[in-house]
């Protein structure tokens, strides 16, 4: 279980700095698909970076199975929002996916198989020998996703991973993610701006407030599995849950606008 307790993150700066996250608490169960939605600039990336052990919280604790996270845990993988920068431009797509798997004593053949399989799953089998700069933004993002999948993490952290792919690819990648979760029991913490996507993918959707960000509410998504892009999305329950999440976000934006006025 991933446990976040009273998390606070303040970036240093004038006037006491800027507090992006304050009093954030929630728990993610093993194998759960947990999605975070909220306004831009709320502090979602900040939160994910703290969970990933890349950024130290100012206050509060984060633990995985009772062990506090004080650096990047080996069994976590991150798909960054700034995916293009996370690829090594001077290495082929296949090599990029392979890098995290290169460990002392690891076997090159099984590595190559894992790379091929992950690239095929994201639809990039033909691009294995290309360099990242020869790919479109959406294809680069899929390389970063393939790299994370090939790594077989226990916890997969994804920051708006489908933001720059077309609708069809996006649907395919959503289903791929559900399949990976189903097959491997990976815990997934996922940030998105797309309410439909959050409801379609998740077991629970957390709505976070504007910064200093905290959990506004968590909506359970008891939609049946396996999910299907057409069947699931045409269920009346889907429309209801979608309206619930969407309505709350709109209320928050509205309240914020009133507060600012």
């Amino acid at each position: 279980m991933l446990l976040i307790t009273d998390l606070e993150k303040t970036y240093p700066g004038p006037n006491g700095g800027f507090t992006a996250v304050r009093g954030m608490s929630f728990a993610v169960q093993d194998g759960e698909m947990f999605t975070i939605v909220g306004p831009s600039g709320a502090g979602k990336t900040t939160l994910l970076r703290c969970i990933a052990g890349l950024s130290a919280p100012t206050a509060g604790t984060i633990s995985i199975d009772g062990v506090p996270i004080d650096g990047p845990p080996r069994e976590f993988a991150v798909v960054f929002q700034d995916y293009a920068r996370s690829l090594m431009p001077w290495m082929s797509v296949a090599r990029n996916v392979e890098l995290p798997l290169v460990k002392h004593g690891s076997d090159a053949r099984s590595r190559r198989r894992a790379v091929e399989q992950a690239l095929a799953e994201v639809g990039l089998a033909d691009a294995a020998h290309k360099k990242p700069f020869q790919l479109s933004g959406g294809m680069q993002q899929r390389v970063a996703i393939a790299r994370a999948i090939a790594y077989r993490p226990k916890v997969l952290i994804m920051d708006e991973p489908f933001a720059s792919v077309d609708a069809q690819t996006r649907a395919d990648l959503e289903d791929l993610l559900l399949k990976v979760r189903e097959e491997t029991g990976t815990t997934i913490v996922f940030v998105t701006h797309d309410v439909d996507e959050s409801v379609y993918l998740s077991d629970r959707v957390a709505i976070v407030t504007r910064s200093p960000s905290r959990i506004d509410r968590i909506v359970s998504i008891p939609l049946p599995h396996p999910r299907d892009q057409i069947v699931t999305k045409s269920l009346p329950e889907f429309a209801e849950l979608r309206a619930q999440v969407f309505g709350r976000i709109r209320e928050m934006v509205h309240d914020a606008a009133l507060a600012d006025a």
Binding site: R49, A52, G53, L54, G71, P72, R74, F76, A77, V78, F80, D82, R85, S86, M88, L99, P100, V102, Y151
Partner: peptide, 16 residues
């Protein structure tokens, strides 16, 4: 920085 974060999050060794 994101490339360095990637290296950290995938636990690259110093040499890697």
């Amino acid at each position: 920085p994101i490339a360095l974060d990637t290296a950290r999050s995938y636990s690259f060794t110093l040499w890697q």
